[in-house]
């Protein structure tokens, strides 16, 4: 319906309105970035204007205090390994449940789906007990295991829906050619799942990288903190020192913004795909 319309005054007005709205959306970023480069006095005198002098050393100070590289590596490790494990276990389980719809598997599927309505807060208190009993507390590995449990429902559901469109004939042909069931999955089915795998990786990454409450409950030692946890504890110490606090915020936000700008096509496509199926 769109291409037939010519660019006219009405569209121009819309464009201007949308651009103004976009500026409004960006104002908070302006405030945070500009003020993170000011001295404390400058910031208190004029929070809206341009810095009198650029204080880049706010960043080098915060980089040291927050031990930013360490927090970044912790976040990266946890996000990557949780993603890898989740893709693996949920693709395999979804495949089996779809291709062998025994009573057990069908009940299992319903159970996985039904669990999605349970809010995290309704599980977290006993989870802390279970996690400490099986040795998952205060360990990045333990946190990753927790993500396996919390992510598997949605991932399995998305894979299950997507697999229905894969024709059975391809798999049958592979079996005739002497492929084992494991080979069929790995060499034939899993590569065909790639579009859904990308969607799942994106949804999981946004969730795990930005998650706060679960890491807060599981990780206690300072040297294994993720970026949100580290920012939280940093903020607790530098509440009123906005010059440093804001530089810390910019550092905390930067990796995800960079990731989004690089991957935005995939991210936006992934969210549309995930929502249609969900």
């Amino acid at each position: 319906m769109e291409q037939t319309q010519r660019y006219n005054a009405r569209l121009l007005a819309m464009e201007i309105a949308a651009l103004l709205l976009a500026l409004l959306f960006l104002v908070p970023f302006y405030f945070v970035v500009v003020n993170s480069l000011k001295s404390f006095g400058d910031l208190m005198r004029n929070a809206a204007g341009w810095p009198e002098a650029f204080r880049w050393d706010n960043y080098s100070k915060v980089w040291e205090i927050m031990k930013f590289p360490r927090a970044f590596m912790n976040s990266l490790l946890i996000t990557v390994l949780s993603n890898a494990g989740l893709v693996l276990i949920s693709a395999m389980a979804a495949y089996r449940i779809l291709r062998r719809p025994t009573v057990f598997n069908r009940v299992l599927f319903v159970l996985f789906i039904a669990a999605m309505v349970i809010p995290f807060q309704s599980i977290m208190i006993p989870l802390v007990k279970v996690a400490s009993e099986v040795g998952l507390m205060d360990s990045r590995f333990g946190l990753i295991i927790c993500y396996f449990g919390f992510g598997v429902s949605l991932n399995l559901f998305l894979y299950h829906g997507f697999m229905k469109s894969i024709p059975l004939e391809i798999e049958e042909a592979a079996v005739v050619d002497g492929c084992t069931p494991y080979g069929v999955f790995w060499r034939i089915v899993f590569p065909l799942l790639k579009p859904m795998t990308i969607t799942i990786l994106i949804l999981n990454s946004l969730w795990i990288w930005n998650d706060f409450l679960l890491p807060l409950l599981v990780l206690h030692s300072a040297d294994i903190r993720t970026i949100p946890l580290q920012t939280y504890s940093f903020f607790g110490q530098y509440t009123k020192q906005w010059d440093l606090a804001l530089a810390g915020l910019v550092l905390g936000v930067a990796p995800m913004v960079a990731f989004f700008l690089l991957m935005q096509k995939h991210i936006i496509a992934g969210i549309s795909a995930g929502a249609v199926k969900g």
């Binding site: 996985f112 669990a115 309704s122």
Partner: peptide, 27 residues
Amino acid sequence: QQLVFVGPALLFFCLIVLVPFLMSFYY
């Protein structure tokens, strides 16, 4: 095959979601 394909997902799901949820009824 059932164990290899479904086992891990089921294990983590039970340990992290199902068991704590059921425990919360008791606690």
